[in-house]
Amino acid sequence: MISIQNVSKWYGDFQVLSDCSTEVQKGEVVVVCGPSGSGKSTLIKCVNGLEPFQAGTIVVNGTSVGAPKTDLPKLRSRVGMVFQHFELFPHLSITDNLTLAQRKVLGRKEDEARTKGLALLDRVGLSAHAAKFPGQLSGGQQQRVAIARALAMDPIAMLFDEPTSALDPEMINEVLDVMVELAREGMTMMVVTHEMGFARKVANRVIFMDRGAIVEDAAKDEFFGSPRSERAQAFLSKILSH
């Protein structure tokens, strides 16, 4: 489904990604972790072309992301993304947030888009808030709406960029619950997160990144049981100690 081959990226002289390669199969849940500044957010943003990269190839469902002829908007409309800071559009109501791209990108009719959006809003348990604006919801609620917004596009895969790291602790679980459910339904997911509990519960594989490189790419049990690299061990012991 997602194939990343030898991807490198530089900001000027500074290399943020160096020779990253991995695959995500259909229905697979891959968790990407690593210390801050390790390039994990950058990597996931390369997958839908939000960040350009200078070397290597990324192929999503048969389409090469970096190729000049690729219709990026079309590709992006097939890949859902959830951001650290939710990024709901604050000037639009929750309903409009859910329907905007359905109408403008997929060309769905107002009614159809609304029905779809409200059904997904119900699924994340927020149908009572359809007429509100993002600023009137809590962080956890906003993030659930953001997930619903991405799902409304019927994505073939979902990218999560630290979806819980901007949330107050008591709101993390409501978002993770939605994500766990999604994973169990067989959604292909690539998730940048520090939530190792989530990884243990639903991940198939865990990728550990450090200084722009993929240091470890292993099945879940292998990763948690006996991480090969010292850096991954150090990271795990630090993150699991609290």
Binding site: F83, F89, K104
Partner: peptide, 23 residues
């Protein structure tokens, strides 16, 4: 505006004119 706003708009598949007009 936070950079994430335009990123989120692009991530949904909106094209540049739509990103400016709608978001």
């Amino acid at each position: 505006l936070p950079r994430g706003q335009s990123m989120a708009a692009y991530a949904l598949g909106l094209r540049l004119p739509q990103v400016y007009r709608k978001v």
